[in-house]
Design a protein around this nucleic acid. Sequence first.
DNA 1: GACTTATTGTTATCAGCGATAACATTCGCG
DNA 2: CGCGAATGTTATCGCTGATAACAATAAGTC
Lengths: 144, 144
Amino acid sequence: MLQSMVDTLRDPLPDFPGYSLRRAANATSAELSARLGTLDLRQVDASAMMLIESNPGVTGSALARQLDIQRANMVPLLKRLEDAGLIDRAPIDGKSQGLELTTTGRERVTAARHTIETFEHELLARVPEEHRAHLLPALNALWQ
Amino acid sequence: MLQSMVDTLRDPLPDFPGYSLRRAANATSAELSARLGTLDLRQVDASAMMLIESNPGVTGSALARQLDIQRANMVPLLKRLEDAGLIDRAPIDGKSQGLELTTTGRERVTAARHTIETFEHELLARVPEEHRAHLLPALNALWQ
DNA sequence: GACTTATTGTTATCAGCGATAACATTCGCG
DNA sequence: CGCGAATGTTATCGCTGATAACAATAAGTC
């Protein structure tokens, strides 16, 4: 019986960890984006805000380095957060500026963290128990 | 000692599997793209070609479903592969067309598979042995 | 202190991947 | 036959990230 007689395809791709990694990231990313969208936040926004929360006064460049984002890409990101009243910028010296969350920003990041933690919990629940504890360390080994 | 006195930031993000997943996917994806670039292939190209290889005569729509790509996005993809002489399209009926690899396409996908397998091997080598076997099943559980 | 180098913030532009909406043509089923 | 579903297609958009260039400023060196 040929595969063309059924509607399922032979698919060798899920055997590749790299492919599976990309698919998993896409699928989960889309879902999280949708949830953060209800808070008017993108994923990068939430990441950046959590980092600012943990490191008040941090500079835009340092943030970019930590998130592995190009400095150039921080500009629209920070502008967006500032325009939304979520962060403040205060000049440190003539060329650097320190970032801090506003009160609204702190509230928003708390909501975002709640959304994210709920989501991560659901994510891990999908993973069979015997693999669960290995996921995070395995992933971190791939990029850290 | 304040964190501002050192150059490392407090970073709570790598504790989130979702974040780690995204970072890992980005990092590995960039690396693989660079390697496939030497074969004049994108990642999606290689994926699509492997799927066509395993299912000769498959239709564009079926391919899109399997890869979770929008039908609309298959158009430039298939055009690119056809223009590069890697695939052939043969009308099945008035509206469907079957896809097949050309001889060049078969050679190219073989090279691509070799590149990918080497890459995947290196990827897994980065993961501590005790976590290694759990990565693929855990990832697959997240999207399949 | 002067000079050179590195860093910061910024503009502009591009690529990859994916999503949505709309449309004409054609197939399949009742 | 007729109608709903599927196919291929066009056009357009959004998110994420990358590169190149630039002016201003800070930091390190002699």
